[in-house]
């Protein structure tokens, strides 16, 4: 426990070192939400429809509020940290600590999540409760939502860690990271709700890991699923976490060999 909290505190602290960075990043979410608000208001006005792809305008806006909330909570750039550390060799500092590499990065990531929760998520929650009339789910779905977000935090970590591992071979993975970001914005449901895709796509998405990062937690909150569906979805989510966990563990062994073998 001591190791864990020590490392996560470091993540927390690094998050608030640069004041300007810290304060400016606070504006990001409200700003994005304003853009989405006007974008969808004009889409609804021009289409003249009350409901588009299963969402009313109010629900659509709430979708984006929740999307920002979940997206911020699960935000993970450990692949960028890995890229940097591997390229300049400072990753050996991590290798000299008596904690596995995967745990160390997870703790720092988790520390930053705590920070995010306090300074970004809580304000959005307060604003959306009192000013945006976001309807709250039932207690059960509320709990399931929290569980789904927690699982999404794990899933995103192990997935991103796997992406980061490629840096051990490729050294520079900024290209891969950009492609990843672009593709994921679609597949997570960050740009538009996944119901906008053709049904056949949606049934494929069900078995991919990405919708479990954002789209599924959001729709649990909005109670768009029956309880039995939620159980299935959370199970698939858990299976993906396990898959990425084992990939991460196995590939890291090879990566460490590669790193240690090639020299720095």
């Amino acid at each position: 426990m001591g190791k864990f909290s020590g490392l996560s505190r470091m993540g927390f602290k690094t998050g608030i070192v640069y004041r300007a960075h810290f304060f400016v990043s606070l504006i990001k979410i409200p700003l994005t939400l304003v853009v989405f608000f006007y974008l969808w208001r004009s889409i609804f006005m021009f289409s003249g429809e009350e409901i588009i792809q299963g969402y009313t305008f109010a629900e659509m806006f709430i979708y984006y509020v929740l999307s920002m909330l979940v997206g911020t909570l699960i935000y993970c750039d450990v692949d960028a940290w890995m890229n940097e550390g591997i390229k300049d060799g400072d990753v050996v500092g991590d290798f000299l600590r008596p904690v596995t590499y995967m745990k160390q990065l997870f703790c720092q990531y988790f520390g930053l999540r705590e920070l995010t929760f306090l300074i970004e998520v809580i304000p959005i929650m307060v604003v959306s409760l009192f000013f945006l009339n976001v309807p709250l789910p039932s207690l059960l779905f509320g709990m399931l939502f929290i569980l789904a977000v927690f699982l999404a935090i794990l899933l995103n970590y192990f997935f991103t860690f796997c992406v980061g591992l490629t840096a051990f071979w490729l050294k520079e993975i900024q290209g891969i990271r950009r492609v990843k970001t672009a593709v994921m914005a679609f597949l997570e449901g960050a740009l538009i709700p996944l119901t906008f895709f053709p049904l056949i796509f949606q049934s494929v998405f069900k078995y991919l890991p990405f919708q479990y990062l954002r789209f599924v937690p959001i729709n649990i909150f909005l109670e768009k699923y029956a309880l039995s569906e939620v159980v299935v979805l959370l199970s698939i989510q858990t299976v993906w976490i396990l898959i990425f966990f084992f990939i991460a563990k196995t590939v890291f062994k090879l990566a460490f060999r590669k790193f240690a073998g090639a020299g720095i």
Binding site: G2, K3, L7, K13, T14, Y18, P98
Partner: peptide, 26 residues
């Protein structure tokens, strides 16, 4: 101690790295 590598937390005061050692090594 590797002369050429950064082993301290670059953005934080060194005392933070020392306290990390305290936690990590128990």
């Amino acid at each position: 101690v590797l002369g050429q590598k950064a082993q301290l937390w670059w953005d934080l005061p060194a005392i933070d790295t020392f306290y990390l050692s305290k936690d990590v090594y128990g």
